[in-house]
Design a protein around this nucleic acid. Structure first.
Lengths: 303, 303
DNA sequence: TAAGGTTACGGCGATCGTAACGATC
DNA sequence: GATCGTTACGATCGCCGTAACCTTA
């Protein structure tokens, strides 16, 4: 048994047990992969895979159990490398952030800029995806930390830190009837609604509020992206239902925002990372920066 | 980085950073160890050890952190091997049991015999030590499971299963005044006492009961071993205070046992093993056997 | 026939062992 | 001088890559 074989197994798992692809990932030729697998299996004394002819179609029972340990080993190996890299030069490195559009555009810019000033040697990679995929990115080690609102709490393998609370808000063009008078869910039902897709940025909280009130909204457009929603609101397609954060007093002067803080329960943005992973000091500082930004957000709100 | 280097680090840790000894354990020559260490350190880019001249005198800060991951990797590696071995032939293997004298002599014989009948291919190694050392044996992978009464609950890295409850009892030679009349702590204070050493087999429960009552016993002999205590009781040295289990109606016909169930809180014997370790099926069956034996013990008591 | 997997063989490099050397008590 | 660690060098063995071969969609 050696570390390359362990890594290989992981690569194989991430490539649907396709030897050729795994070989590419490991920077070796395909026949090498084939041999290493055989060697490992003969060493263990039993097959790790279910085979259909020569093709690998799945893990055997043994294989499934072994893969859990394989994941542990690879994680530990990565941790060792991270720890050492952090130790050598704690001011250089990379952070991979997985997040949704709303955070990437409206929350992260300020803390990232502040962080970059302190750690110019740290590169930040950001990827936007859907909340489920986002957690997947953590598990697949494609991202170091994730920032999002939904579905983080449930996963026992993740550490989820509370970041900030936010509320939904209605945005309409100036002059729209909803600009004046009391806002209520009841009243919203009579307008075409544009809001987030299912599973996105607090959409579930909207659903909960509706269900409680026994109402349904006429959602004519679901998007993952506040800006898309605002664009359609501008064109008069309907009423936008977005994060209050996504309203920019400057740019959105032609839109009117009305808070739904009292109507739809607040959502909590979380910072998540794998419990088992080692975070370099700069990453921990980055998280601190996020928390600070979240606090200043709260204070701004309080004013 | 490779698995041999990881293993080497563990071997080194277990040999007080002595290269020669570690080399022996790894079945290589000492110079090989020296080189592998250097290679690994240069790969990481920073020293893993504090050095005094050429001698390794301790882990560096980096080294300490790395060693945690090293332990994880080695554990996972062992698990893979155990899983595979168990899968290949689940009826052959070894169990290393760490326990105290009391369990080894008075509790384990029956379940071990029953287990051996079902699994003749499994060798059982038993080692007797003190309770603290016993837990250490688990952490050092010298034992797979431990059976003891004290200090197991506190360790978060261990799984501790309740095995059985037992009580203390007084043993005295026939004709001794304590053979008749009510037994009380108060009454015991007037006799010289022989019982377990500190940290052994429920001694702490005796202390707790005494403290509550505001009494002190005149303990003239502390031993780790019920048989030693009984021997001295026979010779008239004093009153024995031991596990009720340690009284054998046959052999100890010349002694009288009086239960202290109502006077000293009951002690709980536990089965413990590392949370992170994989237990082969026969080991899990062995544990079941212990639980069954514990139940039959309870029933016998009830009669 | 293209794609995926196995087998055979030659070459290269990592790691070992021997052995000589340096330091520290 | 005994113990412990490092360095030098030749030899070996493991692993890779090329390439030919087998199987199945």
């Amino acid at each position: 048994m050696n570390l390359n074989q362990i890594e290989l197994l992981q690569a194989l798992q991430e490539n649907n047990l396709n030897l050729s692809n795994a070989a590419k990932k490991m920077n070796v030729v395909q026949s090498a992969v084939s041999r290493q697998l055989q060697l490992f299996e003969t060493e263990l004394g039993a097959p790790l895979f279910e085979r259909k002819g020569k093709k690998l179609v799945g893990f055997s029972v043994l294989g499934q159990r072994v893969m859990k340990e394989v994941a542990n080993i690879n994680q530990a190996k990565q941790n060792i490398q991270s720890i050492a890299a952090d130790f050598m030069d704690g001011d250089r490195g990379t952070i991979h952030i997985a997040t949704t559009h709303a955070q990437a555009k409206y929350f992260l810019p300020q803390p990232i800029q502040r962080f970059r000033e302190k750690y110019p040697g740290v590169s930040i990679y950001m990827q936007q995806t859907s909340p489920e995929h986002l957690i997947d990115q953590l598990h697949r080690h494609k991202a170091d930390i994730a920032i999002c609102t939904e579905k983080v709490q449930e996963d026992a393998e993740l550490v989820a830190k509370h970041c900030y609370e936010w509320h939904h808000a209605v945005v309409v063009p100036t002059g729209h009837p909803l600009c004046t008078g009391e806002i209520s869910l009841q009243r919203l039902t009579s307008y075409p609604i544009l809001t987030y897709s299912y599973g996105f940025t607090g959409r579930s909280n909207i659903e909960i509020a509706l269900q409680k009130a026994g109402l349904t909204l006429d959602v004519i457009l679901s998007a993952a992206d506040s800006d898309v929603i605002k664009t359609y609101v501008r064109s008069g397609l309907g009423v936008g239902l977005i994060t209050d954060m996504a309203y920019d007093g400057e740019v959105d002067r032609d839109l009117v925002i009305r808070s739904l803080a009292d109507i739809i329960p607040s959502s909590s943005a979380k910072i998540a990372y794998l419990r088992s992973s080692f975070l370099p000091s700069y990453t921990r500082h980055f998280i601190e920066e996020l928390i600070i930004a979240a606090e200043s957000l709260r204070n701004r709100h309080a004013c």
